[in-house]
């Protein structure tokens, strides 16, 4: 195979351009994949449905160090039918796992609130797992003005 100097340059440049284009969306995709893997582990491989769970978070968080979030799941919270757990996931934090809340029928309602850190603007997800194994998810994008993971 014989390439002229010019052809080699063109090829090399093309490859470089391709690599740049190909690489740029990677971190976001990788983060989303991590979050997805985490959710699948929590649900036991089931795809979560929408409904029953409501995630409340601000649309804009000025300070990513302390973002108030709350979750609420519709459930009678009886011994046979209650919400076992709710997992909070922040797709693009260095570690997407935020917290897992575990409820019991004694909780009376599946409602909880906390304050979390968000490194940057991203989707926050809440996934609920019921006693019968069904899973539900809600998702909320939070725009972050100042990220909250230090550096």
């Amino acid at each position: 195979m014989s390439l002229t100097r010019r052809e080699t340059l063109v090829l090399g440049g093309g490859a470089l351009a391709l690599a740049t284009v190909g690489l740029q969306p990677m971190p976001a995709l990788a983060a989303a994949a991590d979050a997805q893997a985490l959710i699948m582990e929590f649900t036991g491989g089931k795809e979560p449905q929408s409904g029953r769970i409501t995630l409340t978070a601000p649309e804009i968080a000025e300070n990513g160090n302390t973002v108030p979030v709350s979750v609420s799941v519709e459930s009678p919270m009886t011994d046979d039918d209650y919400v076992e757990a709710v997992m909070l996931v922040a797709e693009e934090n260095p570690n997407p796992d935020v917290a897992t809340f575990r409820f019991t029928p004694m909780s009376g309602s599946a409602e909880a609130a906390t304050r979390m850190r968000l490194a940057k603007t991203q989707n926050v997800m809440a996934v609920a797992r019921m006693k019968d194994g069904s899973v539900f998810m809600d998702k909320h994008e939070v725009k972050v003005t100042i990220g909250g993971c230090g550096g």
Binding site: S70, A99, G108, A112, M116
Partner: peptide, 24 residues
């Protein structure tokens, strides 16, 4: 002695961790 609520916490929870929940 009976569990009401539990949270497994990761570093993404803010300083001075705050939790609000309910109990019957």
């Amino acid at each position: 002695g009976s569990k009401v609520f539990e949270a497994e916490i990761e570093p993404a929870i803010s300083a001075n961790p705050y939790f609000e929940f309910t109990m019957r």
